[in-house]
């Protein structure tokens, strides 16, 4: 178990006849997803667009995305893992009892129908959001869904993709991988990268109070992190680089206003399918770019005597 069976969004546009969104609300969170990539586009092998495609939405509540779906399956909160495991059993023809299924809030018939639709699809895709990956079961939920997608390839073509967002988080992940080997949660304090989510991820470091300074770029942890983490950011010298004043700026020692990347600063953004897109600024900004500021900080730091592992 492990890995990810995926594709770029153009494959979905050109081929997908079964589109499943799980634990996400694209209508409100990724409002262009339906129209640019998945539902309404006419693709090379789905020439009639929406009419050639079936959309299934799995979520714990009826969000505005349900209106776009052909089938809406309302799962009882924190039962996603059970549903996914049942589906993995059903596609392989294993026996599943109706009582076990009942506690998920769905019926065996609903899941049998779902499993059959997935097996019969020509090209199926499972998009999953934070309603799956960040609720009870967390990475085990994601792993179950990714395994389901992988195993479906014994019957037909099937792929999975996380519904990532929040600016260029995918780009950060991609660059971290080629420079450190790991996507996030990397500790460089020993002079080489170490990876341990739960130990070195930002929120864990802050909760333990391990770090004695923070440089925040393109994020607003002051608005989203648990209070004890925010308290630690307020205690230590925190520097924020952001085009606007954020919650984090208010508790930071220093806020540096920078040009908005993509509007008044150039750069590269990685789409959720890890395709890099160049950003060409339309406007000029009186503020420096993030890159400028980081380079200047680096230059100033480089004047100080260097520390290398193994030296005092």
């Amino acid at each position: 178990m492990g890995g990810k069976v995926t594709c770029t969004l153009g494959e979905v546009k050109n081929r997908a006849d079964l589109i499943v969104y799980w634990g996400g609300n694209p209508a409100e969170c990724h409002p262009r997803h339906f129209t640019k990539y998945t539902l309404t586009q006419k693709g090379k092998f789905v020439p009639k667009g929406r009419k050639d495609r079936t959309m299934i939405l799995v979520d714990i509540r009826e969000t505005p995305s349900a209106k776009a779906a052909d089938i809406f399956l309302q799962v009882r909160p924190s039962k996603d893992f059970e549903v996914l495991t049942t589906l993995r059993a059903l596609i392989k023809g294993q026996r599943v009892s109706a009582e076990t299924v009942a506690e998920t809030g769905l019926t065996l018939e609903q899941l049998q129908d779902f499993a059959e639709r997935m097996k019969k699809a020509r090209f199926g895709v499972l998009f999953f959001g934070m309603g799956l990956s960040m609720t009870r079961g967390k990475h085990m939920n994601s792993a179950a869904l990714l395994s389901l997608a992988a195993e479906l390839n014994a019957f037909t073509k099937f792929v999975a993709m996380p519904m990532r967002g929040h600016g260029n988080v995918t780009g950060g992940d991609v660059v971290m991988r080629w420079t450190t080997g790991y996507p996030f949660g990397v500790n460089l304090s020993r002079g080489y990268p170490r990876f341990n989510p739960g130990e070195f991820s930002t929120v864990d470091l802050l909760l333990r109070g391990d770090n004695d300074a923070a440089l925040i770029l393109g994020a607003d942890p002051g608005a989203t992190m648990p209070q004890p983490a925010i308290d630690h950011l307020a205690r230590i010298p925190t520097i924020v680089l952001d085009p606007k004043v954020t919650h984090t700026s208010r508790l930071a020692r220093v806020h540096i206003t920078t040009a908005a990347t993509g509007i008044s600063a150039p750069g590269t953004v990685y789409r959720m399918d890890e395709i890099p897109l160049p950003l060409r600024p339309a406007l000029k900004s009186p503020y420096p770019t993030d890159e400028d500021v980081v380079r200047r900080i680096y230059k100033a730091v480089a004047k100080k005597p260097a520390w290398f592992p193994g030296t005092k």
Partner: peptide, 10 residues
Amino acid sequence: RKWGNLDVEN
């Protein structure tokens, strides 16, 4: 074991 697959459109 683990399996990664990435189809690149067209």
